[in-house]
Design a protein around this nucleic acid. Structure first.
Lengths: 184, 184
DNA sequence: ATTCATCTTGTACGAACGTACAAGTACGAT
DNA sequence: ATCGTACTTGTACGTTCGTACAAGATGAAT
């Protein structure tokens, strides 16, 4: 009375992408160390074998999930650059962008998960550097290279604080601190 | 020709402590998610059963390891307070302390591992807050509460950058940035 | 010297893991 | 229409996991 369930329409590219997305979500919820083939397959609604068919090892699967997260981050960075370009005040615009960024803590959690993983695994370091090099690059035209790096570090510290304490962002304080680092 | 190996001298307190230290080291090397009873037991040179005798569950064992890490961090914080008290220049003293702190990246890795774990598990949050509340408290007498928080965030971001890029600390740049945030 | 609670040690067990693979199905090429 | 490659799906295997527990050893109390 059973038999296997009928096969779905074939779409290898979509499967790869769906697995990467599902992996990203599992990492965000459980962490890199507790990410398993089975959890990813369940999240994606795909059979276990699909994960190993498209990604030879678990490390490959995790790397694909992190890479997808970084791709989304790059999209965000591009939007940040766009918004800053048309902003009358860089400090206030950055504060606003941070407010939005912290609206969904899952993305921030994922990014820091990536950083911790990159601190341990050299192969992941280029992924983690997308943010840490990209943001100062965006800021450099407005405040110079040194202040760009400083402000990036400040924001990273603020994000960490928000992750750990679940507290609200002190927007006016952040704007003021950015202004001090920018030297304006 | 065999038989079990002879029992060692009894010292429950020392065993608890040794297990906490071993757990801390395993977390630093493998991450919270890949920390297992067996890895901790092997690191401590104790039988597997010792881990479950002193800590009912794996979560308890991990919490003990993280708590021990935070205890060491608190000791560091006390030393930071002491050093700042007798320093002619707060910004330069902080830069020097950061240089020393980043000398052994394992401690920094462990601290960020704790932060990421605390972001996911509310029960760990008080542990992670020891640093994020303690450092601003130390800085407050010198630069005020707001600048203390800002400088703490800046330092946290710098540490994250150092973890991800393995780059050297830009000491003069850091001193200058601290001065700007302090408003001096 | 005997007792007993406490600690040590080795082993056992079911669950979950990474990975491999057989069997079946879809679909472009012919 | 058929064929062959590429994909889908379910299951199997050996390993490692968290946890439980039996059996022995210790050492303070009696």
């Amino acid at each position: 009375m059973t038999g296997r369930r009928p096969q779905r329409a074939r779409d290898p590219e979509a499967r790869r992408a769906a697995l990467a997305v599902a992996t990203m979500e599992v990492i965000a919820e459980a962490g890199v160390g507790r990410t398993t083939h089975r959890a990813v397959a369940a999240k994606a609604g795909l059979p276990l074998g699909a994960t190993t068919y498209y990604f030879p090892t678990l490390d490959d699967l995790i790397a694909a999930g992190l890479r997808h997260a970084v791709d989304m981050l790059q999209t965000d960075l591009d939007e940040w650059a766009e918004r800053l370009r048309s902003a009358p005040d860089v400090a206030e615009a950055l504060t606003g962008l941070m407010c939005e960024y912290l609206g969904d803590r899952r993305q921030a959690r994922l990014e820091y998960e990536l950083c911790v993983a990159a601190a341990r695994d050299e192969a992941l370091r280029p992924l983690a550097e997308v943010w840490m090099r990209g943001l100062p690059e965006i800021l450099e035209p407005y405040v110079g290279a040194a202040a760009g790096r400083d402000i990036c570090a400040l924001l990273d510290g603020i994000i960490l604080l928000a992750l750990v304490t679940e507290s609200e962002l002190d927007a006016p304080g952040l704007t003021a601190a950015i202004r001090r680092l920018a030297g304006t």
